[in-house]
């Protein structure tokens, strides 16, 4: 309850300050459009990263749990490397080192790939935990009905694990959003990049960085409320009953 109230306070304070800024600072008209263009890039990278993260996490979790030995080792290596090193190191590695292997990617692609793979490694452990939290009887019933492991996983286990997964994934998506600021360091024109650029051009340091923080907060609040809605919907599907 208190959590929700805090979030409400944040939202109210946010809209108040946004309004105040637009009303007070004439210069807002100069840098706001640029910042919003940057925010659009940030949103695109976040969205792309989310897709990559989910796919990578699913593959790694299932590979680690049920794959034959080589697949299992591959999944574990991926998870440990991406959880064990910094997101920035991963980003730089894909950006600076991969070309030496003959693979040159657009900064935009590198950003989505690096951040998606980083969050995906954490997501894999979330998925694994959620799958393991499903009652063992559900596996046994599936087996008694002669389903294959993949059929049971897809049709019976994952739909039930979904509810437990949504809140931690919500947190991971916020982490992903925050990590997108790193792409400014491979000169991609996201919100953090535009903030630095506008800061150098206009020297309106206080206004720009405050506004940028608020824009990130606004995007985070949208993600949080979307995930809440999803959680409610998924929980409703399951609350009709424990079997």
């Amino acid at each position: 309850m208190e959590q929700v109230q805090s979030r409400l306070v944040v939202a109210i304070v946010l809209s108040f300050f946004l309004g105040l800024m637009v009303a007070t600072f004439a210069d807002v008209r100069v840098f706001l459009p640029e910042l919003l263009r940057g925010a659009w890039i940030t949103i695109q990278i976040t969205a792309g990263g989310i897709v990559v993260a989910i796919l990578a996490a699913l593959a790694a979790a299932i590979g680690k749990m049920y794959g034959p030995r080589p697949v299992r080792w591959l999944a574990i290596t991926y998870i440990e490397i991406f959880r064990g090193t910094s997101a920035l190191v991963q980003l730089f590695w894909l950006f600076f080192v991969l070309p030496y292997f003959g693979v040159t990617l657009e900064p935009f692609t590198v950003g989505i790939a690096a951040l998606g793979l980083n969050v995906g490694a954490y997501g894999a452990e979330v998925i694994r935990g959620a799958i393991q939290s499903v009652d063992r009887g559900q596996w046994e019933a599936s087996r008694a009905l002669n389903m294959t492991r993949m059929q049971a996983l897809r049709r019976i286990i994952l739909p039930q694990a979904l509810v437990a997964m949504i809140p931690p994934w919500g947190n991971l998506f916020i982490e992903l959003l925050k990590a997108t600021a790193l792409v400014s360091m491979i000169s991609l024109g996201d919100l953090a990049f535009k903030a630095q650029q506008m800061n150098q051009n206009t020297l309106k340091t206080v206004e720009i960085f405050s506004l940028v923080l608020l824009i990130y907060l606004a995007i985070a609040l949208v993600i949080t409320s979307l995930m809440r809605a999803l959680e409610r919907k998924a929980a409703k599907g399951l609350s009709r009953g424990r079997g």
């Binding site: 009887g137 008694a144 009953g241």
Partner: peptide
């Protein structure tokens, strides 16, 4: 071979969703 066998469990194990 298992396709010839069916089972009912103590705790039902129905699929809740």
């Amino acid at each position: 071979v298992r396709s010839k066998i069916g089972m009912v469990f103590q705790h039902f194990n129905l699929f809740p969703h």
